[in-house]
Write a protein that binds this DNA or RNA. Structure first.
Lengths: 341, 341
DNA sequence: CGGTCCAGTGCAATCGATACCAGAATTCGA
DNA sequence: TCGAATTCTGGTATCGATTGCACTGGACCG
């Protein structure tokens, strides 16, 4: 009823399992027609599990991300899934919730269960991916890397260019007291976006004392709290760069709750576009980048590596960002005077 | 190097594979300590594939949804994944892209590869889930059902209550020319939300001619186009009920593009909350419901059923909705006069 | 017409783990 | 100290598919 085996097909067709197996593999077989109808009659489908045991490959890939409800990672998963499906691979999904221990447990668990992993690691000092790699698990890094990951493929984003453009945009508007709301600096985007942003500001003559910094997690609450703290300062910043989408949502919520006017009172630049960003009032200025494509590229890299059996040199793809200037950034209230004085 | 087998452990510990297997199963074994160190030394992990072949179970569940980038489904996946992880199940993810054929292919593919499926079927007339069920694949329906699915578990949402509340809210505000922007009526939410909404309007005396209806897909473009058409009418509606979140985003985009004022010119009620809904200008009035919980409940139902080996009677859980009245709904421009005249 | 060649075939081993069954080692009571 | 009861143990079949090897039968050549 529920599952016919290759043996059932063989019996029904009056041949050996070997012959059925050959038929299924597309090799020439005399009883092809008989076998074909036997397969159809029994609704036979080869057991993927048995095949995996024999072949040592599972035709499935795991995507390990901090949080699928983050629109960026949701898009990544979608892109990755589409490519996997084309190649008849299946996709496992795991959330790590930005938790290093959970990530380590997940990776250890995946060895032998999938042919490869697309991973957005929690922190750069992460050891778990190296262990998994030594255990023979191919890994492609997505959006984030770990230290000493030169031997891995990776699909990253140009955090340097994006953050620089954000900084220059705010500087050009005349801001001089500027805050960055960042996630953990122990992750690649956290570190790169912060370093570049601050470096750009100081290299253009902003006093270090005028650069404010808040460190949260990469989640909505972190952005919310950070902005509350910033605006409660005696001299609050006139502009804020928020380094990911979830924290940007939190930041907007905070600004809304305390009734801060954007951009009159404070300018906001986010990293990563949001579906509704253009419809907000004011529409949100953001650093944008291809999201689904980042997922599909990662999957392609991984599948290519599985094909090459590992010997190809590691490939690093760095995607470009664009600054979308919308309405949440403007000249600071004081700056309209300053340049004129 | 990459993978030790139970045989390697047995050899190293000087016992038979049987004994190692017993030790791993927690049975009393004299050489427990020796085996324990052998396991540790070899970093041995039992092959999940081999276990699956023997046991006939894979300890993995598939979640099949139309689109993970829909925040509702992303939340569902997150909730489902968390529960699965607790029970040491793994999660496969498939997008059907609202495509019946792809859904059928996916389901057929999953037989024998997973122990059960959580499915949001594309259309109610869908046959594929029945076939998969007959092939021995337990299925829990999520948010949507199919005809004759009485033997299946399901976690649904109270579309009737939600749509009625939306309709009554608009009626109470004084709207009499009202539009519904719906997805395909061939799906459960599409059908139920439409039926209830229209029935509530007519039962409260709204002329059928005053009820406008646009049918799109459940995607952003559908909502966008539908609203453009509605507002181009000679007598456009004064209120619009949009039956899912993605179409609501599209609707808002359309209203923004043609410069329609909300709620002065037209009121909007959406189904499903959005992360930024409260921050829009005006903040969006929506019918809201628990999202992550819908996913975790579905997973719990499925895992329970796997435990019971199927004999329990089917369970249907219907989650309650809430109407969140924010700023996108108000009295119609004409209605302020009408009641007074 | 006989020998060579080759396309097809089937047996049996294999992948890694589990479970039945028979046998060995231990414990316990007498 | 011996036999019975109990606890552990290991050989082997099994899950469902693939594959190396030896083999058969027909086609083709001289």
């Amino acid at each position: 009823m529920s599952e016919a085996t290759i043996g059932d097909v063989a019996r029904r067709a009056g041949v050996s399992v070997t012959t059925v197996s050959r038929f299924l593999a597309g090799q020439p077989v005399r009883a092809a027609d008989t076998i074909r109808t036997a397969v159809a009659d029994l609704a036979y489908r080869p057991s993927p599990v048995a095949r995996s045991l024999r072949s040592g490959r599972t035709r499935s890939i795991a995507v390990v991300v901090p949080d699928v409800t983050n629109p960026f990672f949701a898009a990544v998963v979608k892109g990755a899934e589409a490519v996997a499906r084309q190649d008849e691979y299946h996709l496992f999904l795991s959330n790590t919730d930005e938790n290093v221990d959970r990530e380590a447990a997940v990776l250890a668990d995946l060895v032998g269960r999938v042919d490869g992993v697309i991973l957005a690691p929690t922190v750069e000092s992460d050891e778990a991916p190296l262990r998994a790699h030594r255990a023979g698990l191919p890994i492609v890094f997505l959006d984030r890397e770990i230290g000493g990951s030169a031997m891995f493929d990776a699909v990253l984003v140009d955090n340097v260019g994006g953050s620089r453009r954000a900084a220059e945009h705010l500087l050009d508007l005349g801001h001089r007291r500027i805050a960055i709301v960042n996630g953990t600096m122990r992750s690649t985007p956290g570190r790169q976006r912060r370093e570049t942003f601050i470096e750009t500001l100081t290299s253009r003559g902003v006093e270090p004392a005028e650069i404010l910094e808040e460190v949260g997690d990469f989640r909505e609450q972190g952005g919310y709290q950070a902005v509350l703290r910033l605006l409660a300062l005696e001299h609050p910043p006139t502009a804020i760069f928020v380094t990911n989408n979830l924290m940007t949502v939190g930041a907007l919520r905070a600004l809304h709750d305390i009734g801060a006017r954007v951009p009159d009172q404070v300018s906001i630049v986010g990293f990563d576009d949001l579906d509704l960003a253009a419809l907000l009032m004011p529409p949100l200025t953001v650093v944008e980048r291809p999201m689904e494509e980042q997922g599909s590229l990662a999957m392609r890299l991984l599948l290519n590596r599985l094909r090459d059996r590992g010997d190809a040199t590691p490939r690093r793809i760095v995607l470009e960002t664009r600054l979308l200037v919308r309405g949440s950034t403007a000249r600071p209230a004081t700056a309209t005077r300053k340049p004129l004085s």
